[in-house]
Simulated assay, not measured.
Amino acid sequence: MANFYSVLLTVVTIVAGLIWLFDAKVLKPKRQQRISAEEQRLQQSLDSEAQQRIAPQSNVAEFAQSVFPILFVILILRSFFYEPFRIPSASMMPTLLEGDFILVEKFSYGLRDPIWRHELIETGKPERGDIAVFKYPPEPTLDFIKRVVGLPGDRVIYRNKTLYIEPACEDSQTECPPLKVIARNLVRADAFYFNGATPLQRFDEQLGSTEHATLIDPTVGGRERFYFQQQGTARDEWIVPEASYFVMGDNRDNSEDSRYWGFVPEENLVGEAVFIWMSFEMERPESSWLPTWIPSGIRWERLGGVD
């Protein structure tokens, strides 16, 4: 089920709240009556310990009363403000590494209810260059993270490992913007980032107002035959539909993105990645007896904002 943890948290919070409410409105007055009757019989006030013996609150109600405020705050924060995510793969290298834990700003792309994800309040739209978390269109139970490349109405071309964008022409524009190549500069071609045993080339790229790094594997050839084919366009060309977005991973030759499965509908957006709050090193020698899921260290230098 999509949004499983959001649904579970919502249901548990509601159940705890209803138990607390029933206890406060129905059971607590009855307990107070029993205590008052006993105080009148004894002609003295009873301390809290004696009151608890005479009219005890059930363990379930006491537990619900203690956890509901905490669950409610977590639900509000997680649903409308910030939600933590873990980077599970290398598709966003070098910007995000496997083992990074990020905060996603949920209100960047509209406030949505935590169960059906209907937009309640419009707060903003993705901008070119944003790192967005979204529900994977072919399988909405999965959360994906990629960089926004194409906005609604844009023409996007990825040819010979070069990105071209023709921005959408607004009705108010007298002259439409031309197709332009997205400039990139080779930063390093040494063995700093790898795909298996293959050293990757690192480039700096400018998308809108965002400058970021990308990786290219020089040994990987064209994969146009695997691209998502949009009717009426070339194999390596796409026109972004209304209320949809074209996304790509920064690790261009190791990313399952819009080139292969199409566009991200607006309703699939979860939020914008804004901060790395923890980063675990997961690599260790094959001789290590520890399980692979146990971190081997902490990358303190990676903590901070995401570009």
Rank of each mutant, 00 (worst) to 15 (best):
Q51N: 10
P88A: 03
A50F: 04
F68S: 02
V67F: 10
R53N: 12
V60A: 11
V73G: 08
I76Q: 05
E39Q: 15
F81V: 10
S45W: 11
A50L: 10
Q52K: 13
Y82V: 13
R41D: 05
F72T: 06
Y82Q: 08
P94K: 00
Q44V: 09
P84V: 04
L75G: 14
S66W: 13
I70P: 00
F63I: 10
F63P: 00
E98L: 08
Q65V: 14
Q51I: 03
A64D: 13
E38T: 13
R41K: 14
Q44I: 08
N59C: 10
F80I: 02
L75M: 15
E49K: 11
P88Q: 03
I76V: 14
Q40V: 05
F72A: 13
F81P: 09
P84M: 01
E62R: 10
E38Q: 14
E49S: 15
F68Y: 13
P88I: 08
E98K: 14
P56G: 04
A64K: 00
I70K: 15
V60C: 02
Q43D: 07
I76G: 10
Q40L: 12
P84Q: 04
I74Y: 11
I54E: 11
L42Q: 04
I54F: 08
A61I: 00
E83A: 07
I70Y: 07
R41A: 12
I54P: 09
F85T: 03
F72S: 11
F85A: 06
S45E: 15
E49R: 09
A50Y: 03
L97S: 05
P94W: 02
T95F: 01
F63A: 14
E39C: 07
I54C: 07
F63S: 08
R53H: 07
